[in-house]
């Protein structure tokens, strides 16, 4: 009984503190997901336009971002960018977090959007162009609506990865969930296991609905109307 009382006491004390951290995690991840998705969508569409130099440029961008750990990218944005002596690159930690995480997100979204567009059968594009649609009209009315449906399930997985990646931000002093947990552990070092479990549960409550949505979206949008024989 005493054990439970003790643990309940920790929960009671730490919850507001951890919720603060979760709120920061939420803010940063939402902003990064938003801007990362916008950028990724634009780059993904551009990548499919078959303009050779543009495609090479985007691929280089993707390789750089996907071929290096997020932690290194974060350090570069936060510690290296200011050394360029360009005033607007002198980010505070929150901006550095959002910028680096947005770029990281965009690299995944670009690939998802581009491969979804490529997965729309060429006949769809031919049928659009042969009735006289411009390339832009074919994208707008036929190709993108079909491609975007296919992106929903993989997009949700990326969003969960991004949410979990915010844990790394503790290294530049952002008081997100993991950081708050670590501070709490300094106060109550004897309960390290319990507090980390608590943090994990908080992450779970954020990520689980996203994954559930992904699962739902997969059955709802994954195949409807798209007959990929």
């Amino acid at each position: 009984m005493e054990w439970f009382a003790h643990k309940w006491d920790i929960i009671d004390q730490l919850t507001p503190f951890l919720l603060q951290g979760l709120w920061t995690t939420f803010k940063i991840s939402i902003v990064a997901i938003f801007f990362g998705s916008m950028l990724g969508f634009i780059l993904g569409v551009l990548k499919t336009l078959q303009i050779y130099p543009l495609e090479k440029l985007i691929n280089t961008y993707l390789h750089l971002l996907r071929g290096s750990p997020y932690l290194v990218q974060l350090y570069i944005v936060y510690f290296v960018f200011p050394s360029f002596n360009i005033s607007w690159l002198n980010f505070d930690s929150f901006t550095a977090a959002v910028v680096s995480l947005s770029l990281y997100t965009s690299s995944y979204v670009t690939e998802i959007v581009a491969s979804a567009i490529f997965a729309v059968p060429t006949g769809q594009s031919e049928a659009s162009r042969s009735v006289g649609m411009t390339k832009a009209q074919a994208y707008r009315y036929v190709i993108l609506p079909q491609a975007l449906k296919m992106t929903i399930p993989p997009m949700a997985s990326v969003y969960v990865i991004v949410i979990k990646s915010t844990a790394v931000l503790s290294v530049i002093g952002i008081a997100e969930l993991t950081r708050q947990g670590e501070v709490a552990i300094m106060r109550m070092p004897g309960d390290i296991m319990f507090i980390y479990s608590l943090i994990a549960i908080f992450y779970f409550f954020y990520c689980f609905p996203v994954l559930r949505f992904s699962k739902w979206a997969e059955t709802r949008f994954g195949s409807i109307g798209i007959d990929l024989k």
Partner: peptide, 27 residues
């Protein structure tokens, strides 16, 4: 010019996300 030349394909190429009716309306 293409809008004045109808083309029918071996694999139909209907817009998969639209109903038959909307396929005819859209263009």
């Amino acid at each position: 010019l293409r809008s004045q030349v109808g083309m029918v394909f071996q694999h139909f190429n209907l817009y998969q996300h639209k109903t038959a009716f909307e396929n005819i309306v859209l263009p």
